[in-house]
Amino acid sequence: MVRLILRRLAWSVPLLVVATMLAFLIVDLIPGDPARVILGPTATAEQVEALRVSLGLDRPWFVQYLAWLGDALRGDLGTSVISKTPVIDQLNARLPATLSIVVGATVVSAVLGVALGVFSAVRGGWAGRAADVFAMLGFAIPNYWLGLVLVAVVAVQLRWLPATGYTPLTESPWEWLKALILPVITLAVGGVTMIAKNTREALRDVLARDFIDSLRADGWSESRILVRHALRNAGIPIVTAIGVFFVGVLGGTVLVESVFAIPGLGGLAVAATPAHDLPVLLGVTVYFCTLVVIVNLLVDVTYGVLNPKVRAA
């Protein structure tokens, strides 16, 4: 088990390297001068040259990358082109808001999704068909649009919850919770339906397997077979679906934070894009990748707990 974790940790290093290297490669591949793109046509040649030097663009891309990597390892992710403040400070300031909605949406999706999936798998018939329809709907509704509708109905018309904004947990837990409800619902709708569908399929596969019949022949009750045996065996695809959803929901924050005006990492990335603020975008990439690495590690450890074969491998 420890070996499994260590191997997975070792595997996460190349992921971070490749993801960030990719960014430098893209920068290098652009036809034309990134510094000129960043500053726009009105800047003077001197200004462009100064920015080139300060961004290190005058050196080959891998030299730039190694320099950036060296700084990053020391906790320095550069300075924002727009705000001129250290990127890492901005990221740390905005991380809690993003984490709140991402973790919230994942937990809500996992709990409701698994519950719904189990219900529809066991009941079959109309419940199964309903689960399929909901899965399709949950996938089809654009989440940013759903967010807007929720704001219009719940916040503006009914005035039950704040429409936009975010209050840190440390300031007021109650306000924090209220601010999270709508964004979390917005993100979780797709997650609940997707995880429910995956759970249902995995569980139905397991329930059709021979060992379930053998357990019935032992005289076990259906509910005990479901809880103690079927769910555990269906666990790997379910956990995989939850992990995949987490990665997807990170991207979803880009839109949802904009809809709800939440000061998180996604919103930061959106603001940085038209301003060509590369250091900020790179920083967000690093943070998101790190989150993915952590979640994948958790997923792998869960695999090991669920399946003795994985543990042995």
Partner: peptide, 13 residues
């Protein structure tokens, strides 16, 4: 494991 949305924003930038 790559965060697709952020990379797309990077390309857009």
């Amino acid at each position: 494991a790559l965060p697709a949305m952020i990379i797309v924003l990077l390309v857009l930038a």
